[in-house]
Design a protein around this nucleic acid. Sequence first.
DNA 1: ACCGTCATTGACAGCGCTGTCAATAAGCGT
DNA 2: ACGCTTATTGACAGCGCTGTCAATGACGGT
Lengths: 347, 347
Amino acid sequence: MTSTATISDVAKMAGVSIKTVSRVVNNEPNVRANTRELVNQAIVELSYKPSLAARGLAGGRSFLIGLLYDNPSDSFLVELQRGILRACREKHYGLALCPAFSKSTDVKTDILDWIRATQPDGVILSPPLSDNMDVIDALRATGLKFVSVSSAGTGHGPAVHIDEAEAARQMTHHLIETGHRRLGFVKGPLDHACTRLRYEGFCAAMSAAGIAVDNTLVAGGNFHFESGVEAAEKLLSGASRPTAIFASNDDMAAGVMHVAHRKGLSIPGDLAVAGFDDTPMSRQFWPGLSTVRQPVEMIGEMATERLMAEIQRAKKENGLHEAETPDGSSNSEILSFELMLRASTLG
Amino acid sequence: MTSTATISDVAKMAGVSIKTVSRVVNNEPNVRANTRELVNQAIVELSYKPSLAARGLAGGRSFLIGLLYDNPSDSFLVELQRGILRACREKHYGLALCPAFSKSTDVKTDILDWIRATQPDGVILSPPLSDNMDVIDALRATGLKFVSVSSAGTGHGPAVHIDEAEAARQMTHHLIETGHRRLGFVKGPLDHACTRLRYEGFCAAMSAAGIAVDNTLVAGGNFHFESGVEAAEKLLSGASRPTAIFASNDDMAAGVMHVAHRKGLSIPGDLAVAGFDDTPMSRQFWPGLSTVRQPVEMIGEMATERLMAEIQRAKKENGLHEAETPDGSSNSEILSFELMLRASTLG
DNA sequence: ACCGTCATTGACAGCGCTGTCAATAAGCGT
DNA sequence: ACGCTTATTGACAGCGCTGTCAATGACGGT
């Protein structure tokens, strides 16, 4: 057990008080440049790393942020984590995971328990948790800072996301432009805010092109592969099948393609297919799946930075008027998306 | 800020000393059942959750385990995390992530720095980190407990994995049994121990069937889709192409299928394809990909339990002879795998 | 040189919990 | 009932760090 150097070792070595070392470590002002240098040398020399536990106990911070998620797609989760971790590393923060199940009746309790045990300084909410008012309210009641990702900040606090509706509109427009008139659409689950937005984008493009949305060509889904299969079976069995199907996410689009293959329909000849998310899979399918790319990693990174900023602010204002929710912070940051057009929609 | 109840609140409410509450919380012996009950009631009543930070500081433990990984497939990582988190939740442990890059020259330093800052009670190593002797040695030098997953414990300490060679042998056997004689194989990257094992299994089955391995039908890869594409282009361009290709993992198998489709080869008619890992994708492809299912989630769970046990043991023996590495612990646990045979190899 | 002001530094008291060790209660044998 | 062993409990001192506040040093003006 290579005993790690403590702050007092550093203090001794640099010939200053413990508190001064603390100041240097925390980048606080009012330390003479000369002294700061001395301390930094000692820190490097001893390869001193402050103990998170002690800092947390003493300072009331845990230097941990939480990621609350409910079974998103693997690649979404991993990309998001990557972004968050990158931002964390810079700020010397740690990331703790809290898987939750929004369907369960006591998500709220589960999450609160986890928060009490872990005591993160803030949390990042991913959909559909970020669209769950129960959770949002509970979180707000704790006073803990949070930021939502990939979820249109419906006034639920700060959020980082893309313009979902516009993305769906553009993809639909692309389909129409390619010559399709009978478009099918597979919706996502109702508890995701993006379900509505993506559908709105679809409708907007249709109406702009003067095509009426045929309700028999709109199917419900839950973002999983199997629901894409079911939706496709329904949509493709009707008398007048669509010539293109836009699924609200890639997993469901994969289900649609699976069914099309099984039915012997060629893609895109007999049926064009589009998805949403640009999972790695969409590149690997044959034919490649046209989809919308969200900069998920960047979203994670920005959300984390935003969260850190909130935490900072909260710490400073601490003890003052204790303003509940400074509503000015409800604004969200909107990142740009990218249409990835591949063989599944291109002749 | 709903101020969280502290241990002394509980003690007051239960009418016992702080220390007794601590005993109950930590499940220590020598507390009368009656007293224990009293304390538990107070704990529930106040919905008390011990502070990780304080426990860590005082007890010298952090109640955190680390997961060190280097860019594995998304689904592998997510499944592994799921298993680990399940085990963690039971034991009230937290999980901290440490992405590392084994290609980088200072993986070792990166990891050590991370460990110093985070101070986990133990870490789980996933491939290829678990096969990197530099890392293993550095870890061992710190005295920190670790467990490897999905990596044949080549004597590098405890590990949890499947019998990779046997799995590959069985899959190869299946291919041979289906009538194939000209089998292609796509290897994984050299820094993964499983690369060798899977290849050995392949060779074993071939030799058992009396078929010589044709080196022109063995290609190298790196577990990524693109390398599968390259390998397939090489293997399928030769004069006498194989009638089946076994890729060491699903991503590369996806690459093989992609190329086959592009070349107009029907699967499995013109070419049978098999993979390894049973990523969700393998079910979704058309046709479904035959593959080997590792119980990744279970591996994560068992590795975590194993790690906890090691930590326990270390804690008890603490202060005694300080035996460096009780080599009896180098044994590994072997879980069973499952052959998932789907349309890509079945007529 | 003298005072006010601000920048710099350190002494000290905890943060909430656990380990140690001593104190007390409970059993048990005779 | 007495003396002994063992089970149960609590008092107390930190763990390594930060916040508070008081002490010291530096600097500018007169």
